[in-house]
Nucleic acid binder design. Sequence first.
DNA 1: TATGAATGAGCGTTCATTCAT
DNA 2: TATGAATGAACGCTCATTCAT
Lengths: 191, 191, 191, 191
Amino acid sequence: MRTVKDPDVRKQEILKGALKVFAIKGYDKTTITDIARELGISQGLCYRYYASKEEIYDAALEEYANYILTSNLKRFNDDNRSFKEKILSYAGNLKEYRKPETDNEELYELFHGQNSQKFHDQLMMNIAGKLVPYIAEELKKAKESGEITISDPDTYAYFFVYGQIGVLLNTQHDPNSVKKIQDMLIELLNL
Amino acid sequence: MRTVKDPDVRKQEILKGALKVFAIKGYDKTTITDIARELGISQGLCYRYYASKEEIYDAALEEYANYILTSNLKRFNDDNRSFKEKILSYAGNLKEYRKPETDNEELYELFHGQNSQKFHDQLMMNIAGKLVPYIAEELKKAKESGEITISDPDTYAYFFVYGQIGVLLNTQHDPNSVKKIQDMLIELLNL
Amino acid sequence: MRTVKDPDVRKQEILKGALKVFAIKGYDKTTITDIARELGISQGLCYRYYASKEEIYDAALEEYANYILTSNLKRFNDDNRSFKEKILSYAGNLKEYRKPETDNEELYELFHGQNSQKFHDQLMMNIAGKLVPYIAEELKKAKESGEITISDPDTYAYFFVYGQIGVLLNTQHDPNSVKKIQDMLIELLNL
Amino acid sequence: MRTVKDPDVRKQEILKGALKVFAIKGYDKTTITDIARELGISQGLCYRYYASKEEIYDAALEEYANYILTSNLKRFNDDNRSFKEKILSYAGNLKEYRKPETDNEELYELFHGQNSQKFHDQLMMNIAGKLVPYIAEELKKAKESGEITISDPDTYAYFFVYGQIGVLLNTQHDPNSVKKIQDMLIELLNL
DNA sequence: TATGAATGAGCGTTCATTCAT
DNA sequence: TATGAATGAACGCTCATTCAT
């Protein structure tokens, strides 16, 4: 059975299948055959679109990180909201990154498997790195407008992004974790 | 050339060699042969002391994490110091975890290689997890003594540990990173 | 040099090559590399068709046992022959199991090597186990028709099959062994 | 802890320990370390008395085969018994080879393990080979004395020894197997 | 474009054997 | 004589990658 598809569609499709398998089994334990079987294609085809397994992995991780970031920033960039609203909502956003509205719902469950820890951490780190500039930007604006008093917005940005991830990473099963972070932020920033 | 050594010495020696190679090349790319060659022993000998490559890796990571933690806590547990002193010094301590006084100096340079990112991250995560309880403890004491006003010390502990690591991780080449963190902490905690 | 073949053909081919090498060197001393080299293929290919060395061995032994059994039963099941004819011919059949009419002629010589003793024994045991039910069936028919007088056909079946194998095994180089067995059978069963 | 023993005692001791482990685990899966551990000695010591693992195995198998043979022949060689008594008792003897009177009782259970099949078969084959001459001798005497009428005692000897083993091998759990063989022998030989 | 049979380098691991003590 | 740490060759097996179809 030989199905011909538009190259761009195929490329995207491979990424999606790879993402799922990598998330379940982790990089090492995932084979190209696994990915091909997941998609119902041959291994050879993967190599028409990506030069190596590593390239597929990187692309898949990047893709997913961007996807999460984008859906989070949608709410974050809403200029009608105050700094306080934005900064407080972001903890909740991050927590729910695993509940995408679209067709990735099945992934939600995957990240609770044991094998996905490393993937999970890497994803978090990737997202955190991308998120920092946006938070820094907000902090700078808030500083200029006098809403908050801080010395170095960049340091704060790193600190807040990674700090929140740390809390979320370690309190995954605490339903109040978001609330606790928000309380803390209010205290710390005198909001 | 056959050199017989005390089992405990050998076991430790293997850990040290493994640590170095893992740090340089990362888990996957490191082979048992690499480790054996590094130490000038046969691969078979590694398996006399550890059951598998993974066991060696875990032991090496754990060992190093404990080493760093211990040397940091030495200063941290000094009860003559005030809360402020302790909390401010800890950022500096963490930053210098790669400059042990003893014989691990050679490792210092290793962590800048490209392949060590994953190892580095895992090490950080491991240390962070171990560190949190101590920070939480200090925060609780400071809260009770009225030095600071915070709602939930546990959340703060995660937040501060991971937040600081995030800053350090991303500003490795900024000589002022410690100073910046300290300034931020003073502001945030009104110290 | 890459030769693509039909999977079924390849699978059979591997079995045949494996059979030869196992017969020469025995299970332990045979490596997958040996088998691959014998066939002029890569070791990896063996694992595409069989999950392990043991699986290859079992399949090869089984295959050959069935082959011998089938060619023997062809003559044995000829209902035009009397019980006496059948039971006497079977010793000769078994002796000649190593002289297949088709393309296995080369195997004939192999079973005289020193290393093949274990393989040889196992093959014999396997065939014997498969043969017993047929002999038992014949004995039951002959008992019912009054051709012979025996108490327990099943016991006789085991006894006769293994007994004959024992003789053949130990008199491989005696050209009269078949004749001797036949004489004995005539005496024992008063045929 | 270093225990010095008489060389001959040690050599015998090693054989006994090896026998046990080989019987349980089979040749391949048994390591020299296993044997050494069983005996509470070092692996190195095994090599002072035997040149290789295979030599230990062969010696152990041979030793045990001889042991069983000897204890069986004790009863068999009793010249006060008639041919009929001897030939009928031998099936029972063989069946009980695994119940030695002395200190090998523990071995009795071992031969029921899954791994011991090959060892078991080899042992049987070995014993059978050794037993044939004695049976042949008895048959010749009986033929000369007119107790039985047979053409070629040697062929009969192989046939009877292997035939009986075949029955015993395949009816291990039938408590009447010995009785069935004896009935058959009486019929076949008109005893 | 797509398939999947075939390759082959390389891995983790085992263990009979050696030898410094 | 006895130990057991050390060796190293070899094994079974995996899998990213290639290529004939």
